[in-house]
């Protein structure tokens, strides 16, 4: 573990310049450039809002703004997009970087770090553009926003843990790469992002507790939609789970990195 940290520190400039290069090359030769990074999720929000707001807005309790549903959607997507982007990129990370891993010796931990860094930048841009939209819609925010920092960190921990475990296994068992996108898709619909929690019948609601992302989207909603402090007691178990998954992910990653090169 200490070796990993040392390697990361030695390669810090490399990590930073890789993140920058990634953003650069992603939007090279496109006219709107960085804008695409936020236009995509915002278009998603617009589609859901347009189609579902009349059906669902009445059911959003405790908020009277006519744009309440759109705001609710954005808050949930902010959390979900971060999670799913990190997981799906970690999933194929080692396979797509296989050629490089087989030729050049460098600290492997830089690869997931670069993914996290570049996903965080995407998330930040999305967040800033959402703030812009909120202001346009006349939705005010308070200092509870600061809660987003520890929450983001926590989502990253969970996502990296899950992503590393799946990414490592995917190198050896390629079926995982096929099944995970399906599970992520299902996870999206089993997490209250598009719909409010109260449309789920009371007797099934406790099942959501098994979805680790539920606690996070819930907290994001509390902060961004209702401007209240998130329910900390609700978050404690999931913080523990995230930490465990992250440690398990790092352990698998360390154990497998020698054999990964053999089978890639």
């Amino acid at each position: 573990m200490l070796g990993m940290m040392r390697g990361l520190w030695l390669y810090r400039h490399f990590v930073l310049s890789s993140i920058r290069n990634e953003q650069r090359s992603r939007f090279a030769r496109s006219k709107l450039g960085v804008l695409w990074m936020v236009l995509n999720p915002l278009a998603q929000v617009a589609i859901y809002a347009l189609i579902l707001s009349n059906v669902l807005s009445a059911k959003l309790p405790g908020i009277e703004s006519q744009y309440a549903y759109a705001i609710y959607l954005m808050a949930g997507l902010l959390a979900w997009n971060l999670f799913s982007e990190i997981v799906s990129r970690c999933l194929t990370l080692f396979i797509s970087q296989g050629a490089l891993m087989k030729k050049i010796s460098f600290p492997r931990i830089t690869m997931p770090t670069i993914v996290v860094g570049s996903c965080l930048i995407n998330n930040l841009l999305l967040f800033l553009s959402m703030l812009g939209v909120f202001t346009l819609l006349g939705h005010s925010l308070s200092f509870t926003l600061l809660w987003l920092f520890p929450l983001t960190l926590n989502v990253v921990m969970l996502a990296v843990g899950v992503g590393l475990i799946l990414g490592v296994l995917n190198v050896f068992i390629r079926d995982i790469g096929q099944v995970v996108p399906i599970i992520l898709q299902m996870g999206f619909w089993f997490t209250p992002v598009v719909y409010p929690i109260n449309i789920i019948p009371e007797e099934y609601r406790h099942l959501l507790e098994f979805n680790p992302m539920y606690a996070f989207t819930n907290a994001y909603h509390q902060i961004l939609v209702y401007q209240t402090t998130p329910d900390l007691l609700h978050l404690v178990p999931i913080i523990g789970v995230s930490l465990l998954l992250l440690l398990l992910g790092l352990f698998l990653f360390r154990r497998s990195s020698a054999e990964m090169v053999d089978v890639l």
Binding site: L10, Y11, H13, F14, S17, R24, S25, A28, I104
Partner: peptide, 16 residues
Amino acid sequence: DLTGRQNVIHSAGLMG
């Protein structure tokens, strides 16, 4: 998509 200069910086970084 990156320039030669940017790629050089990247590769040298990869070499540590």
